[in-house]
Design a protein around this nucleic acid. Sequence first.
DNA 1: CCAATTGTTATTTA
DNA 2: ATAAATAACAATTG
Length: 270
Amino acid sequence: MPELAEVEYTRKRWDVGWGKKIESVSIQSNARIFRDCDIKKLKKELTGASLTRSESHGKQMIFKVRGKGWLSIHLGMTGDLQVKTAKYRKEKHDHLILRQKDQALVLCDPRLFGRVRFDSGSGIPEWWKALPPRIDSNEFTLALVRNFLKRRKGSSLKAILLMQEAFPGIGNWMADEILWRCRFHPARLGGSLSEVEICFLYREIRRVCELALKYIDRPGDKWGEPPANWLFGSRWQNGGICPKSRVSLVREVISGRMTCWSPGRQPLTY
DNA sequence: CCAATTGTTATTTA
DNA sequence: ATAAATAACAATTG
């Protein structure tokens, strides 16, 4: 479910717990999301500590645990962070609950594709520093995109945009949105783009990320939605209409992922 | 019972 | 050997 902007929104949900002591920690210890994690250590280090700051990077989130280390969370497909009252009772898919005096910080994840880890030490973990350049940073350059397309010249554009080692935070709906704006068929191969088309792709990747944050990551109990003239609002229901060309949208599996595209503006021509 | 799900990764195929 | 495709992971919903 969550892509770059939804992750950023969700990360901030726990901001209300900053600096407040974690009185107790409850963990569903056999959950798959802890597969990279020493659960006993996690519980020991979090109990009595407090969170002091956090950030996100693509689909990853990290929380600083004062004096102890770093808690990081990937939400997978169905993960969510919530804030409940102090008396909240654990529900079926809750896996980590940080209980504070006046509230409970809850991680729930029905499908368990998420991932939790804990790193000791005061400096941010090495693996975090080694993440690929954020799409909104100066290090995310046209040359980076050009080289990556060349390296993956035999893969579809759809598959390429989903590769987190180059496009951290882009997921299924954002990939479709970018290709729809560029007017590229999602099955086109990475090696088929002209220099001008690569520039186009680069620009729309940056723009969709920037605008997704603007529309989705806004204050309130629920994240926002992009405007009605995006593909986003029409892509899920069958028989959706392309907001630009007014043609019926197609939903089909491309490179193993359900993909929505518009025959009215995304021809499969090179 | 069958199909489908906004993510990642191990395994298989080419 | 590499790159790309596919299956698998788990749980729920239509």
